[in-house]
Design a protein around this nucleic acid. Structure first.
Lengths: 341, 341
DNA sequence: GCAAAACATCAAAGCGCTTTGGGGATGATT
DNA sequence: AATCATCCCCAAAGCGCTTTGATGTTTTGC
């Protein structure tokens, strides 16, 4: 059933039917109702492609997921982010189109997306230090919002980010207040912007208290459970082992916990852990009482915010480049306690 | 830059340019080359919407991700599955469009997808017992492939699935061979098809050895770490505690491991664990030596297979409803050992 | 009672592409 | 020289929708 047929059935022109269905005022309420009913009865639904060809609006948002050629990891937060964004899209009648791109072919990928014209804008995932995609997107004029920020970029752009620096500064302070002095940092890959900021937060807090930064108890890698485990084992085996860990993700923290348990150390007593918690739906941090003390910020919520902001930019509801900085909460759980002496 | 303009520049008709670019034989190689060069030089890329309107092919595959209204969990395998499917799509020039749908509005969602016409087919995720979507999709005539199967459905349909029953039967046998007699099952939600089959495999193996099924050491829920932990604590606290666990996901298994560690029990010695491992990229099961003994099957690979199968169905390269049953490997790791006496 | 304004509807053009149905050269065949 | 393929290429229709510019019909105001 297409517009032409429906118009035929109703004995109206396509123009009128189209206007009736799209809420234009040039059509009487009576006719509108008649059209609406007929549309429903005959199960008419406008063809999206034709519509977007005619309007020039794709009513779709693109998400480019970079698949690193080196480390083949899919970002575990992806599912929850998408779920959040999806909520917005459903409400606003948008679609979400995903493109998987190897990180060396990004340039071409974005240009293609632009000229193929089936999205109105894109969400940029996983920004790195001075991320080249931002300049690229500005250049080709495709609307976008970044989930995160890009340190070192002097471009103007929209973003939604968690205050990673503040979060980790607070986490560090929290441990320092508990009397910990040797605090290890198990961070994500430090070409990622979030990791850079978290490290900065950690270093700021340490430095403020006059504690020297010791890179021998700092690590940076893709955040798997194994990595957390390995890093913790190594660090705890060395002389002058730390009494606390700050960890960049729950999955890593689980690895650290396993290391403690292997060594017969009690979490929250012998060694404290603070982790960042993205509130992934499949990895809840306990229920009533958090297991880990954590800086907490919902990635699903971020997904909602990012997509919402992008749609509003596209609709011209916002001029200039809006930004949004979300604060992470510090949830005290069972994984921290006073420094042992 | 669009076709018309490019044709203008070249002094050719749109027809010729279109044919040259799409490899039709009605154009001389010389002209084709000239067109190709000009296209590249002027950065011409065909508009996808217009193309699909004209051809009737969207060159896109839909993925409907059900967001349960009750349990708000996003399936953790989603990211990796998508990454696998994405590889296929990139190669074949397809796009992936995601629709997030609340599980009670699925009917309307699929109809909408069909009539909006911007996908050529869909992948069905997370099939349940006698999943109504299968009949629906058959009815509305939208090509689809199911990732998994649907027990109890008498519909004809394409699917790609892991042999869950066999996998869990083997896992159970493996434990039985090690002398375990009390084996707990920590399963996923048993309205999901995969969970039903896994349970069947477990029960088959137990029954074959004349061991009675004891539902007091069987659990079924959404597979979180906490759930694994809780279930294990409960089950181990009861009389006649099992000496082994079969677990439906790595995340759960990690919870079970934590329970053991809390109770001072040694994994692989006091209590054995076999888990299913979807080979999620962010949750590798060790590296050289697997941590958990596991039935292993790559969900990313499944993503590739499913999408590939769907595209071939759409292209009419396969008649009837193809199916593919993948076998899981049983990887022996450090989490299993002979039953203690 | 009549011009002006307001209302309800339509025909047709256009979005950017593919594809059908020709048609003019060129060279080979009778 | 006339006929017939073969090659290249083109004009125009069509995909299903929106939107512009017009047209016919009422209603309103003085």
């Amino acid at each position: 059933m297409n517009l032409k047929e429906l118009a035929g059935i109703l004995g109206l022109s396509q123009t009128t039917v189209s206007r009736a269905l799209n809420g234009y005022p040039e059509v009487s309420e009576e006719t509108r109702e008649r059209v609406r009913l007929a549309a429903e009865r005959h199960n008419y639904r406008p063809n999206h492609r034709a519509k977007s060809l005619a309007t020039g609006r794709a009513m779709a948002i693109g998400h480019v997921i970079p698949i690193s050629t080196k480390h083949e990891m899919v970002n575990p937060i992806f599912g929850d982010f998408i779920a959040g964004a999806g909520e917005t899209y459903v409400k606003q009648g948008y679609e979400m189109v995903l493109t998987v791109v190897e990180d060396n072919k990004e340039d071409e990928a974005y240009r293609q997306i632009k000229s193929r014209g089936n999205v109105d804008g894109v969400v940029v995932h996983g920004p790195t230090l001075n991320d080249p995609r931002i300049a690229l997107l500005n250049e080709i004029g495709l609307p976008f919002v970044v989930h995160g920020r890009s340190s070192g970029s002097n471009q103007r752009y929209s973003w939604v980010d968690v205050n990673n620096k503040r979060a980790f500064e607070r986490a560090t302070d929290f441990l320092l207040d508990l009397g910990h002095k040797r605090i290890a940092l198990i961070n994500g890959l430090e070409n990622m912007d979030f990791a850079i900021r978290r490290r900065a937060g950690y270093e700021t807090a340490m430095t403020k208290r006059g504690i020297e930064i010791d890179t021998s108890i700092m690590r940076s890698a893709e955040m798997t459970e194994i990595y957390g485990y390995r890093a913790a084992r190594e660090i705890l085996a060395a002389d002058n082992a730390p009494t606390a860990f700050i960890v960049s993700s729950m999955i890593c923290a689980i690895g650290v916990r396993r290391a403690l348990s292997d060594l017969g150390l009690q979490m929250g007593k012998d060694v404290s852990i603070v982790t960042h918690d993205d509130m992934l739906s499949y990895l809840p941090n306990g229920d009533d009482v958090p297991i880990f003390t954590a800086t907490r910020s919902s990635v699903r919520e971020a997904g909602k915010r990012v997509s919402d902001m992008l749609i509003r930019c596209i609709n011209g509801e916002i001029e200039s480049s809006p930004t949004l900085l979300l604060e992470a909460e510090l949830m005290v759980g069972q994984s921290t306690g006073p420094a042992p002496r």
